[in-house]
Design a protein around this nucleic acid. Structure first.
Lengths: 146, 146
DNA sequence: GTTAGAATGAGAATGGTTCTCATTCCCGCA
DNA sequence: TGCGGGAATGAGAACCATTCTCATTCTAAC
């Protein structure tokens, strides 16, 4: 994984909004890059071994989201999870454990992906709705919860 | 829409859990049946013109969820929306407005639905994950927010 | 009708998230 | 190398959706 390229991309995204790529923000990005799926604030705090205060973490998440570096995800009740934006880590989908709430990334076959994209496009051309993105969320039970 | 059949189904689901199908719960089910997509507690309160107190509404939602009558949905930050369970209103997907958070139901073509189902099944047979359900969420802007 | 379990209503409590404010940091410029 | 100002930080209070508590009321079954 080309961490340095990721860092350069993120730094540029932040700079274009007059924001700095500080230690705390680097830590958040690194943790998200290392994770296999979106993480909640609590999970991030855990991954970072609570090296930054809650309020700073939430603020960093906000800044990174507005800079387009990370994207929020709402698959489970009450918590928002974040992951690197698509332009940084590519398009993918999610496996969501209905028991423990864990979320993992998963890729789907190109043929199906193309079919979904076609559908989304056709909705854009017919309905009173302009699609910008789509997400296939697969719910079930993860290995730990079986 | 055969409201009486819906009521009968819901009543039976509740009775099998020694719960009653009371006026407040009927109102919630009716509001959800009339809606074109999942509703949050606040939206329900609005639809019901605040005829039942918040605590009762949340309790009703809990009871109905545990009885399998309604299902929660988490597409937008901070709020949980509910809709009638699939066995009551059929399988469908969602259009989510990233601006105002509104969620509308949408059907997808059977061919694509079949392809998605196949994919989900294949994940079930290979990965350390047992799928129980799937949801295709299409994000974008609704007519009001364009 | 009585009674026990279920439901209700009001308000307090909870938990994730956001806000406030005083302080500290860091980049650009002298 | 020091200054100034906008950006970032840390601690804690505040916020808001949701859940809990508890006393009261309803309702179905005997």
């Amino acid at each position: 994984m080309a961490i340095s390229k990721l860092d350069r991309d993120v730094e540029q995204a932040l700079h274009s909004r007059d924001s700095r790529y500080t230690a705390g923000r680097r830590a958040v990005v690194a943790a998200l890059a290392a994770a296999g799926g979106p993480l909640s604030a609590a999970e991030l705090l855990d991954a970072l071994e609570a090296t930054l205060p809650l309020s700073s973490l939430y603020r960093s998440l906000n800044v990174l989201e507005h800079a387009g570096v990370i994207e929020p995800h709402f698959a489970t009740k009450g918590v928002t999870r974040y992951e690197l934006a698509e332009w940084l880590q590519g398009h993918h989908h999610h496996l969501i454990c209905v028991q423990c709430g864990a979320v993992d990334d998963v890729a789907i076959p190109p043929r199906l992906e193309a079919a979904v994209r076609d559908l989304v496009d056709s909705i854009g051309s017919t309905a009173e709705f302009t699609p910008t993105n789509h997400a296939l969320e697969i719910e079930g039970r993860c290995a730990r919860c079986l």
